[in-house]
């Protein structure tokens, strides 16, 4: 049993990398989601086209291909990225494209009377979005954002293939060193599931916090 403790520590070190990657990727994805989601609703056609091109491109190609492209092809254009940077970039941009559609859908689902109220209060477009529309839309986005974050966590396993020592990579190291397969892979499956449970628990808590006092106002 003693030897497993050492290997478990190796896997836990990988778990830290996985969690770091998930947090940083989610932060980038959140920024991209709002930029592209609001961009798609812009009055200016070029902004709409740019946002649509971004969303279709990153949703249309596989995360795996994007990651390899960022890691192996970008250096040929003079941008050399560390595996962690390439991982955060690919994961954030990929999941951001999916989340952008969530942002767009939530903003569009806000009723017309809210926009009319903004006009009545003499808000400009930005003020209306900032103070009236987004606070209501954000609550609607949260549950899907939680699912997106779990998708990002799952996709982060792919970075092990560009030699970033995340949880999956460490499990492969343990497999290579011990020849045991059940222990490392079962351990990381359980750890991934535990992290996913924490994410959905946190999102549900945040949702409860943000909707406090709204019962009965919105169905």
């Amino acid at each position: 049993m003693g030897q497993w403790a050492g290997y478990l520590q190796l896997i836990l070190e990988g778990a830290v990398v996985t969690i770091k990657l998930t947090l940083m990727g989610s932060a980038l994805a959140l920024v991209m989601a709002f930029l592209a989601g609001i961009g798609r609703l812009s009055r200016f056609a070029p902004v709409r086209w740019l946002a649509t091109a971004y969303i279709e491109f990153f949703r249309g190609t596989s995360i795996f291909v994007q990651l390899f492209w960022a890691y192996f092809v970008l250096p040929l254009f003079g941008f050399t990225l560390t595996p962690l940077q390439a991982g955060v970039l690919a994961l954030g941009l990929n999941v951001g494209a999916y989340a952008a559609e969530v942002v767009r859908g939530a903003i569009k689902s806000i009723g017309k009377e809210q926009y009319e109220a903004c006009t009545a209060l003499n808000f400009n477009r930005w003020q209306g979005l900032r103070h009236v529309i987004l606070p209501q839309a954000f609550v609607l986005m949260l549950p899907t954002f939680g699912n997106n974050a779990i998708e990002l966590l799952k996709a982060s396993a792919v970075v092990s293939l560009i030699s970033l020592s995340d949880m999956t990579f460490q499990a492969q190291v343990v497999r290579a060193q011990t020849g045991s397969t059940l222990f490392p892979f079962l351990t990381i499956l359980i750890l991934y599931f535990a992290i996913a449970c924490v994410i959905s628990f946190a999102i549900r808590g945040l949702e409860r916090h943000l909707t406090r006092g709204l019962d009965g106002i919105r169905s």
Binding site: A155, V158, S160, Y192, C197
Partner: peptide, 11 residues
């Protein structure tokens, strides 16, 4: 559904 496909494939 909560665990990565890649790890399941390895498994």
């Amino acid at each position: 559904r909560g665990t990565p496909l890649l790890v399941q494939l390895y498994f």
